[in-house]
């Protein structure tokens, strides 16, 4: 009986959360298109999101490229298809691995950052203070952050992709004696706009999801410093989860377009 009740509560809570998040997203769109626009703050946030995540994204990208190539090499050698390495790694990184890994890393850094920052601002009444000061805190804090994440993530993904390919080409250079020029030639031979464009569009959505959940969790933080921790934590969990949902939908949709 109690378990059943608990389940019902949880389900209710789940849909409540989704509804809440949707309202939050709708509010974002409404506020984002109406002036005034906080350009200066947007730039600051872009810097925070973009430049400050670059090193992290590049490090993980490099390692992913390295590992992906090292792990695939024996199998490809077995099939006598090791010369296909650049094509395979190139497509998998540009299409899927690059955007998803970058987005996951960023959800760890950016979403939690947003959650904690906005959460502490909420708890210490800084958000109220802003509103009293005649600045729409939603515009100033939320819209700029979501926009910054949405705009910066595709760029981060591109950097991540490049570094991952570089890592992969290093392995091929030292283990397979493949020159960088040949490697990248093959990569770009394998790639088409059908790989790059959906991945880039996907990255925008990833950025949006990261920004949205981070801000949502931060903005709705409950009272007390404990609420800030919870906000940061749940922001990461929710963002990561939503990323995969978005990824699934994106792959599904782009697949349909491929068919056309």
């Amino acid at each position: 009986m109690d378990v059943k009740f608990n389940m019902v509560q949880k389900t209710k809570h789940f849909f409540e959360e989704i509804g809440d998040l949707s309202f939050f997203a709708a509010r974002f769109f409404k506020q984002a298109v109406n002036p005034p626009f906080e350009f200066k703050e947007l730039l600051r946030q872009c810097y925070q999101v973009g430049n400050r995540s670059l090193l992290l994204v590049m490090t993980t990208g490099f390692i992913i490229g390295l590992v992906l190539t090292l792990q695939t090499r024996p199998t490809l050698i077995e099939f006598g298809a090791v010369s296909w390495m650049p094509n395979m790694v190139g497509i998998s990184i540009v299409r899927e691995v690059g955007p998803v890994i970058t987005a996951l890393i960023c959800s760890g850094k950016i979403a939690s950052g947003f959650g904690a920052e906005l959460g502490s601002m909420k708890v210490t009444e800084q958000i109220d203070a802003m509103e009293v000061s005649g600045t729409n805190p939603f515009k100033y804090l939320v819209v700029t952050r979501i926009l910054a994440a949405t705009l910066m993530l595709p760029l981060l993904v591109i950097f991540g992709d490049l570094i991952a390919l570089y890592g992969s080409s290093l392995v091929e250079f030292f283990k397979g004696n493949v020159s960088f020029r040949l490697y990248f030639n093959k990569v770009f031979e394998a790639l088409s706009f059908g790989d790059l464009i959906p991945a880039t569009i996907k990255s925008f959505f990833f950025g949006f999801v990261i920004g949205l959940t981070g801000c949502y969790k931060g903005y709705k933080t409950g009272r007390g410093t404990a609420g800030v921790g919870i906000a940061a934590n749940t922001a990461v969990v929710m963002a990561s989860l939503l990323l995969f949902v978005v990824d699934f939908v994106a792959v599904f949709v782009s697949d349909i377009f491929y068919e056309l």
Partner: peptide
């Protein structure tokens, strides 16, 4: 720095 980042990325 942001400009550099954006320009490089683009």
């Amino acid at each position: 720095k942001l400009g550099l980042f954006v320009v490089l990325g683009t």
